[in-house]
Design a protein around this nucleic acid. Structure first.
Length: 340
DNA sequence: AACCATTGCAACCGCGAATCC
DNA sequence: AGGATTCGCGGTTGCAATGGT
């Protein structure tokens, strides 16, 4: 037996909403609320519409404080970052953008943002405007270690490939206490095939494409999800909510002239200079350097979330790890890190 | 001016999850 | 407990507007 229809299809209007219908719906909801039952609402409001249609119209268009129009570069960055991290969870992404709806974000991504990123080689080109691959529902947000190889393979061809491969790779959680920042040895302990060796001077090259390939140095270490990163107001003992930082690591290569580094990043059509000052952790070898830093020029960023939100997100996504729930948020200075 | 292709976005559909009874 | 109902989400479609030839 098939599923029962949500409404009498023969007696409901479809297609664009008229201003009269809009005002009827708006007026009814403002006066009575939704009553927690969208299916019954259209009849009560005197509308010949399906309940689902009413809900959509209200949520995407009529409800107060809906923001339409151009997306800001900050919004772009948030969308890119979250899409890279969690994939096409539009409602979660829209939740980070006040006034934006999931439909809006989804449309914006599909019609504009994706093209922008394709133009700079951050997402693969797709033939049809409406084609994009849905992440299999069986795939957890934190997928298994087996995804690793594909992560690295994809990394060969662009700057943020595994991120935009629409998967969120996790290795094993590493818990650390204390205040020492994670060292490369920490990475080595959780990342298979990790290499923390500096490039030897004989391998120093002016070929940026080699330096740009992070898998040369840190295979598999693309992104980090860090709970309670150092320097963030994460101590729960002072009443401030513990935060999580989701960030992308990117690797730069460039020329070093008296520590005035001119880094560049491959946009697929050549190297574009970016503004970046050499950091203490960067390695300067001859006239070249390699380092790691969020590249805000290219949509990479860190986002701060309430720890509980991230936990919910992880758990909701069917994580195959049981550890996120056991993150010790009450422990002063406790940290948990995921590499993916 | 006419035709066709592309774009942008509102709206629809189907499914899994959540909730109700 | 479990079937029915409803909600919410993500993917897709339809269509008007716009651009190009």
């Amino acid at each position: 037996m098939g599923r029962a229809p949500c409404c009498d299809k023969a007696n409901v209007k479809k297609g664009p909403w008229s201003p009269e219908e809009d005002s009827k719906l708006k007026e009814y909801i403002e006066k009575n609320g939704t009553g927690g039952n969208w299916i019954a609402l259209p009849q009560k409001a005197g509308l010949k519409r399906c309940g689902k249609s009413c809900r959509l119209r209200w949520l995407n268009y009529l409800r107060p404080h809906i923001k339409h129009g151009e997306f800001s570069s900050e919004e772009d960055r948030i969308i890119c970052t979250l899409f890279a991290t969690i994939g096409s969870r539009w409602s979660i992404i829209a939740g980070q953008l006040p006034g934006r709806t999931d439909n809006d974000v989804k449309n914006y991504w599909n019609t504009k943002l994706k093209k922008k990123l394709m133009a700079v080689g951050l997402v693969p080109h797709l033939n049809h405007r409406h084609s994009y691959t849905r992440k299999p529902s069986s795939q957890s947000l934190f997928s298994s270690h087996a995804s690793y190889q594909s992560s690295n393979t994809l990394y060969q061809s662009s700057v943020l490939p595994s991120s935009f491969a629409n998967s969120f790779h996790s290795l094993s959680p590493l818990y650390m206490t204390g205040t020492t920042p994670p060292s490369t040895l920490d990475f080595a302990s959780v990342v298979p095939n990790f290499s923390n060796e500096k490039p030897s001077s004989s391998s120093v090259t002016t070929d940026n494409s080699l330096l740009m390939n992070p898998s040369t140095y840190y295979p598999g270490k693309d992104n980090i999800l860090m709970f309670g990163s150092e320097g963030s107001p994460n101590s729960s003992s002072d009443g401030i909510k513990q935060e999580a930082v989701i960030g992308f690591q990117n690797y730069f290569a460039g020329n070093n002239h008296n520590n005035e580094v001119e880094p560049s990043i491959d946009d697929g059509q050549g190297f574009i200079p970016t503004s970046y000052s050499v950091q203490g952790s960067d390695q300067i070898i001859g006239n070249n350097f390699w380092g790691e830093k969020l590249n805000e020029d290219f949509g990479e960023t860190s986002l701060r979330y309430d720890l509980e939100d991230v936990k919910k997100l992880i758990i909701h996504s069917g994580s195959d790890l049981d550890t996120p729930a056991s993150v010790d948020a009450s422990k002063d200075g406790a940290r948990a890190m995921y590499y993916f």
